[in-house]
C-alpha cells in the first residue's frame, strides 16, 4: 500500500489571514467561491424559471387580459425603478473595483450608495403595491377589475377620459372574463415582483455585512471575494428585474 499514495511536496507558504485551512492556496479558495456562487445563481435561474414558465403559458392563453392588466401598472414608476437598479449595478461594480484596488473608503461609499439605491427601489415598490391595494387589484376575494374604471368615471372630468389609444382597442373580452383572467396576471405580478423584492432585501442585508467588513479593512487586492460575490448576486437580482420590467409593464404598450 505504501506506493499507492505518494505524499506531495507541499511546503507551507505565508498564509493570508483569510485563507481557510482546507484550501492549499488563495486562488484555489477564490475559484471555489466563484464557482459556488455561479452554481447558486443557476439555482436562482431555475427558481424564477418556474414562474417565468407559468407566465409564458398564461400570457399566450390570455394575451388580451395580460395586455389590459399590464396597462394598470405605472410606466413612470416601473421605468424609474429600472433606471435605479441599473444605476445600483454600476455603483456595485465600482465597489468591487474599489476593493480590488485597496481603496477602503471608496469601497464603503459605493456599497452604501448601492444600498441606498436598493432602498429607493423598494420604496417605489411600496408605492406601487399601495396603489394596487387601493384599487382592489390584489387577487383574491376582494379583487375587482372594474373598480379602477368606476372610480375614474366617478371622479369625472378629464380623469374620465379613456386612456390614450384606448379608443382603438376593441376588447374581445367581457368584464366578467377580465375579472377572472386578469387575476392570473396579478397573481404572477405579485409573486414575481414580491420574490424579486425579497431578493433585494436579502441583498441589502448581505451588503450591510460586507460594508461593515470593508470598513474594518478586511479586504485587499488579495482577498475581496465577499465583495465580488455579493456583486454577482446583486447583478443577478438586477437582471431578473430587466426581464420582469418588459414582461409585466410593457405587454403591448406600444399603442
Amino acid at each position: 500500500m505504501s506506493n499507492a499514495v505518494a505524499q506531495a511536496d507541499h511546503h507551507a507558504h505565508a498564509h493570508h489571514p483569510a485563507q481557510q485551512h482546507h484550501f492549499d492556496t488563495m486562488p484555489q479558495q477564490k475559484e471555489a467561491a466563484v464557482l459556488g456562487m455561479w452554481v447558486f445563481l443557476l439555482t436562482e435561474i431555475l427558481f424564477f424559471g418556474g414562474l417565468f414558465a407559468a407566465y409564458m403559458i398564461y400570457r399566450v392563453w390570455y394575451f388580451e387580459a395580460f395586455a389590459e392588466a399590464s396597462r394598470r401598472l405605472s410606466l413612470f414608476w416601473g421605468g424609474l425603478n429600472t433606471a435605479v437598479l441599473i444605476g445600483s449595478s454600476l455603483t456595485m461594480a465600482m465597489a468591487v473595483r474599489g476593493a480590488q484596488t485597496n481603496k477602503r473608503t471608496a469601497t464603503v461609499n459605493w456599497l452604501i450608495l448601492t444600498m441606498i439605491l436598493g432602498a429607493v427601489f423598494l420604496g417605489v415598490k411600496v408605492i406601487e403595491y399601495q396603489d394596487k391595494f387601493a384599487n382592489y387589484e390584489v387577487p383574491g376575494a376582494t379583487y375587482n377589475w372594474m373598480y379602477h374604471d368606476e372610480r375614474a368615471a366617478a371622479a369625472g372630468g378629464e380623469h374620465a377620459a379613456p386612456a390614450p389609444g384606448a379608443a382603438h382597442r376593441q376588447l374581445a373580452l367581457s368584464p366578467g372574463q377580465l375579472q377572472r383572467t386578469t387575476q392570473i396576471y396579478f397573481s404572477l405580478y405579485f409573486t414575481m415582483t414580491g420574490l424579486h423584492a425579497l431578493h433585494m432585501i436579502i441583498g441589502i442585508g448581505l451588503m450591510s455585512v460586507i460594508t461593515w467588513m470593508a470598513w474594518q479593512g478586511k479586504f485587499d487586492d488579495q482577498y475581496y471575494t465577499p465583495v465580488e460575490m455579493s456583486g454577482l448576486y446583486w447583478h443577478f437580482v438586477d437582471i431578473v428585474w430587466i426581464f420582469l420590467f418588459p414582461l409585466l409593464y410593457l405587454v403591448e404598450r406600444h399603442q
Binding site: V39, L42, T43, E44, I45, L46, F47, F48, G49, G50, L51, A54, Y58, W61, Y62, P139, G140, A141, R180, T181, Q183, I184, S187, L188, F190, T191, L195
Partner: peptide
C-alpha cells in the same frame, strides 16, 4: 441543483394560492 429550485417555486405558487387567495392554478379563474 437544477431540479430542487423548481419544486421550491412550485410550492411557493401553491402557498400563495392557498394562503393569499392568488389564482395561478385555479381553474375557476382560468
Amino acid at each position: 441543483v437544477l431540479g430542487t429550485p423548481v419544486i421550491a417555486i412550485t410550492l411557493v405558487m401553491l402557498g400563495v394560492e392557498r394562503g393569499l387567495g392568488f389564482g395561478i392554478f385555479d381553474a375557476a379563474r382560468g
